[in-house]
Each structure stands twice: as C-alpha cells, then as structure tokens.
Design a binder for these strands. Structure first.
Length: 153
DNA sequence: GCCAACGTTGGC
DNA sequence: GCCAACGTTGGC
C-alpha cells in the first residue's frame, strides 16, 4: 500500500464551502476547466488526502481536510447546457473533462491563512505561495503536507 | 509552429 | 479596481 498523496484543492466559499461539504459528506469535484488541474486530478488515487482551501475570501486559507473516494468520473456539468461549466466542444463518446469524488474528513478549528502559509513556506516549497499561481488543484509533497498539519492540528 | 491579443484567476 | 501570471485562441 502506497502512502496516500496529498493535494490542495481550492474553492470559493460563496460557491462551495467546507460547510457545504460537511452537510453533504461527499461531493463530486466538478467544474474544473483547466487542463493542468484536470491532469493533476487524473493522478489522484482513492485514499489520497486533500486540504480544502477557501479562495477569494478574507482571509483565504486552508479550512479542512478531505479524502478521495472515487476517481476517473465523467464531469456531468460539461453536457449541461444550463451549467456555467457547459462545454460545447466536449462529447459523450470522448468527454473532455472528468473529476473525482471527495469525502469530508474534518474542519480545522482554526483557518491556516495564506498569509501564515507564506510566512512559513518558501515559494520553492509550495506552489500555492508562488506569485500568480492560479491552479485550483495542487499536489502537495508529503513532507510539506506534514509540515502544514503541524500548524493545523 | 510562432506569437500577439485576449480571457481568467485570485491576491491585494 | 489593479495587476501579475499564465492559458487559450486564431491569424499567418
């Protein structure tokens, strides 16, 4: 059994927050329309862990933990004409976008803000703190994940 | 295949 | 609202 890989997954709390996930227990992480982020998601394995990051809010930061429960799922929103994620260039024979299913693990008592993360990590260590980073899904090396956890627990 | 224009993300 | 950093698009 390999050690689970860690990820950092961003969501705007106005759209989907850790509270929503807690209520649902499990969610399809759909709407990813960036190829790099999609490719990262394709590399996820069941049992992997992810930090839930609230973006575009004050302050942005890590608020909880999730676990990957299913992978290689077709993102249904690409075929939904009423969805903002509808993609006319995709087709059911060869779907362009897929997603994973994530399960709620916990919400941290205290948010670890981007500011704190920036103070504790260098840009080399963590993609998240690199200026201009816009990826909504980021792999987190295990050693970095462990360091993050020491500030969260 | 190059590259300029344009769009998006997201912190500030 | 600004802007940096990319990704995407489309003309050539």
């Amino acid at each position: 059994m390999n050690e689970p890989q860690w990820w950092l997954m961003k969501s705007e709390p106005d759209v989907y927050s850790i509270t929503h996930l807690k209520e649902e227990n499990e969610t399809l992480w759909d709407g990813i329309r960036n190829y790099q982020a999609r490719n990262f998601m394709r590399n996820m394995s069941v049992g992997d862990k992810a930090f839930f990051y609230h973006s575009n809010c004050k302050p942005p930061g890590i608020v909880g933990m999730m676990e990957v429960t299913k992978t290689n799922l077709v993102d249904p929103t690409q075929f939904d004409k009423d969805s903002k994620y509808f993609d006319p260039k995709s087709n059911k024979e060869k779907p362009r976008w897929d997603c994973a299913k994530l399960k709620y693990i916990c919400e941290y008592k205290r948010k670890l803000s981007l500011k704190e993360i920036s103070e504790k990590f260098s840009a080399d260590e963590l993609i998240l703190v690199r200026k201009g980073n816009r990826l909504s899904i980021i792999p987190v090396p295990n050693i970095i994940a462990k360091k993050l956890l020491t500030y969260l627990e």
